[in-house]
Simulated scan of single mutants.
Amino acid sequence: MFTSQGPTVRELAAQALSSVERGYDLLSPKFDQTPFRTPDRMLDAVEETLAQREGSFGSGLDVCCGTGAGLGMLLRLCRGRVTGVDLSAGMLAEAARAYPDERVDLVRADARALPPGPADPYDLAVSFGAFGHFLPAERPALFSGVHAALRPGGLFAFPIGAPITPASAAWWAVTGFDAAMRVRNAVWRPPFVMYYRTFPLGGVRADLRAAGFTVETVPLDHFGRRPDGTPRWRLVLARRATGAPVGRAEDE
């Protein structure tokens, strides 16, 4: 929830009527006091799962790093350098203040056109809470850029929630939000792209495979299971192929 140190209604309105880049520049000083920041509980669950399954990594990349919520996790998981990429200069400035570690590099760039990485490609890429800013047609460019930034065998990991149904109050909330954003973008410029229901696992899996990844998911049982026994959250593990033909990976 918002805290007393968070943005005011007027500040949120100014953000909503701006472009994505300008909106986050405006919000950045108070972003960590909003519910939009990835919760530490999610970061801890992803870190624990990656550490148990993969051990440690060489270098790491945080795609759309924002104020740096995922950078601390990468610093613990990775032995080498860690890079955060974001479109907003304001968000990167907050990340720089939060993580003055000499192993951290921060790069301002559009995730749909990632700049060339270091001479040694990354071993691990992660992303948290940013995919609503990309329309489905933009996913192939996003995933292809991450694929190019990883070494063969490198891993792209991110959490994804289970589908919600119309029987849930959350379904009506996110559907209403997405509808309001579509109306806003139809009548106001510049657009502010942020939708909650444009990143389904099936389409995401297909786009990742088309970009050259093998894909599996593992349950994040830290968040429990739904009444039908399926996990509320999964961790997507998309691995850049090592040279063999891309095949079908079974989901757990």
Rank of each mutant, 00 (worst) to 15 (best):
G55R: 04
L61Q: 06
G60S: 00
C78E: 03
A95E: 09
L74N: 05
G72H: 07
M91T: 12
C64S: 11
G70Y: 02
Q52A: 15
A95S: 15
A98P: 12
L92R: 05
R81Q: 13
G68T: 01
G58M: 05
E94V: 14
R53N: 03
A89I: 03
L77V: 08
L75A: 01
C78W: 00
L61I: 00
G90F: 14
R76F: 04
V85E: 05
D62H: 06
A89M: 08
L77N: 05
L71V: 02
A98M: 04
E54Y: 14
A93T: 12
A98Y: 01
S56G: 14
V85P: 08
C64V: 03
A89Y: 07
G80I: 02
A98C: 06
G55M: 11
L74Q: 08
G80A: 04
R79P: 00
S56R: 09
M91C: 12
S59Y: 02
G60T: 04
R97A: 12
G58I: 03
L71T: 05
L92C: 15
G80K: 02
G58L: 04
L92A: 10
R53I: 00
G72E: 14
G72T: 03
E54D: 02
C78I: 06
F57N: 12
C64H: 09
C65I: 02
F57Y: 15
G68W: 11
M91D: 14
G90L: 11
D62E: 10
A95I: 00
G84P: 06
G72C: 02
L71A: 06
A96T: 13
S88L: 08
A89T: 08
G68L: 05
G68M: 10
